[in-house]
Amino acid sequence: MTHRVYFLNKLRPGVDPADYEEWIRRTDYPVARRSAAIRSYDVTRIEGTLDGNGVPTISYLEVIEVTDIEEYRAAGTAPEFVALLEEWATYVELDEALHGPVVE
């Protein structure tokens, strides 16, 4: 069964999106994608609502396909992931972290 983790993120006030996206490419993707618990990982910049009305409540959506939710949680305690999350938190205010199985 495919299991995914979602992070609905908003940038901290004053953070330049270009700086954050460069950090994703340079640091976040390489570290996260080396994890045996992660099958795939992508970050999407949210530019608007589909109907064009209103303003999105988040800036970025992270979608992580994992081998197993408990394996993923355990990987998050490794020193390189702890350091990664500390850096990530300088850019992002976490709105919500979610997970669940894909309906197949």
Rank of each mutant, 00 (worst) to 15 (best):
G48M: 05
V82D: 01
V63K: 09
P101C: 04
E87D: 13
G48S: 02
L50I: 09
N9Y: 02
L94F: 09
P56L: 00
Y6R: 05
E47P: 15
T67E: 10
R73A: 04
Y41T: 10
P13Y: 15
L8T: 14
Y29W: 10
V15I: 11
A74C: 06
G14R: 05
N9M: 04
R26W: 01
V43D: 08
L11P: 00
T67G: 15
A74Y: 07
S35L: 13
D68E: 08
I58H: 13
T44A: 04
R4H: 08
R33L: 12
E21A: 07
V31G: 11
L85H: 13
F81D: 00
V15G: 03
E62T: 09
N53E: 11
E22M: 04
V66M: 02
I24H: 12
P101M: 02
T90A: 08
T67V: 09
R45E: 14
A18I: 09
R4T: 05
A89L: 08
L98Q: 01
Y41R: 14
A18K: 07
V92N: 08
R25G: 12
L11W: 00
I69Q: 06
I69A: 06
E71A: 12
E21P: 00
Y41I: 07
I24M: 02
L85W: 12
G100V: 09
A97Q: 13
R12Y: 00
D51W: 06
Y91F: 08
E22R: 13
Y6K: 01
E93N: 04
S59G: 09
P13T: 14
V92H: 05
Y72I: 08
H3Q: 09
L94K: 11
G52T: 06
H3D: 02
E47L: 15
D28L: 08
S35N: 02
G54Q: 15
I69G: 03
I38K: 10
V103H: 13
H99P: 13
E71C: 07
Y41V: 09
V102F: 00
R39D: 08
V15E: 02
P30W: 06
V102K: 04
L94Y: 04
P79R: 10
D68M: 01
I38P: 14
D95Y: 11
H99G: 09
R26K: 11
P30E: 03
D19H: 05
Y41N: 12
F7P: 02
Y29Q: 02
E93A: 02
V102P: 00
H99V: 03
A75C: 12
Y60W: 05
E21W: 10
W23D: 04
R4G: 02
R12H: 00
P56E: 00
G54M: 11
A97N: 03
D42V: 01
V55A: 13
D19G: 10
N53Y: 01
G14W: 09
A78G: 08
P79G: 03
D42A: 12
P30H: 04
L11S: 03
Y41S: 13
V66F: 01
D28C: 11
R25S: 15
V15P: 00
E62W: 15
A37Y: 06
L8H: 14
